[in-house]
Design a protein around this nucleic acid. Sequence first.
DNA 1: TTTTGATCGTTACGGGTGCAACAAATTTCG
DNA 2: CGAAATTTGTTGCACCCGTAACGATCAAAA
Lengths: 153, 153
Amino acid sequence: MSSSRHETMDAAALELENFLPYRFNRLADAVSRDFARIYKERHGLTRPEWRLLATLGQYGTMTATAVGRHSAMHKTKVSRAVTALEKRHWLTRLPDGADRRVDNLALTKAGARVYRELVPIARDFEQKLLARISPQDRAALLAGLRALERAFG
Amino acid sequence: MSSSRHETMDAAALELENFLPYRFNRLADAVSRDFARIYKERHGLTRPEWRLLATLGQYGTMTATAVGRHSAMHKTKVSRAVTALEKRHWLTRLPDGADRRVDNLALTKAGARVYRELVPIARDFEQKLLARISPQDRAALLAGLRALERAFG
DNA sequence: TTTTGATCGTTACGGGTGCAACAAATTTCG
DNA sequence: CGAAATTTGTTGCACCCGTAACGATCAAAA
């Protein structure tokens, strides 16, 4: 029936551009790549390094496992990011008195300075991103995301 | 003022878990990883290979550049995915009569078979994903995503 | 036609990534 | 207590990735 151009189309076809996993990835990639330019060009940070910086900036002192749990990163990513920031003296490891397997990670003054510099830039980026759509759409997006995070995250 | 625990917090801090680029990445990663398990375990496909398969399944015949444009992939990703699917005889290259730089890519019968097998599984995955949230939240999410795609994609 | 510039797709390269294996330390439990 | 199981973080490995450079081809301009 109808005028299909080849055998795989019609009801059997999937519209990739309407497929949710694809759409999420596309958006996340575009947004992330845009934002990553900031901390990459400015400080040569990778995304795991930025997340580590952001997590320690927010919470002050944590173990590597706690960083990974909070920032949704694999422990190897955290480990490598810690090594990198330590090498720049943006982070220090303090042995934990109660558990010798772990170190308590914290930003140095230099690290905290970079963090404080990036925070308003991040806020601005997010605000400008949301400003591109209407208040209604914005509210809908945030509500929908929240719901999916509750159900899936 | 107030009971801050360390100097980087308070107004200066950024809540990573509420930061939009982070939230998008987290969700996209979780959703994609979940869905990727299907085509990875079933057929050993990578994500670029799945996207190539999905694009050719949907459109029939395209050049590599067109595949990249439609599926938001870098040309090197497309190139490598084409090589991989060609090696499995799931895809053929036909020289273009008008432009000798390009090949017209199309799925073989074997490739189309895999595509037709995966489509209903993909649909099912998406449907089950959306079924986890309420109809209101679902509508909000889709409206919000659409708006952001219009403004940003 | 000849020159110049743009486009298409591939590949080497440096670097990021998850998996699995591992040592060290801690916790559990008999 | 002491053996077994678990947790924590690091590293080797194979693989994936984007950048840049490249040859080939096509399009535009002279």
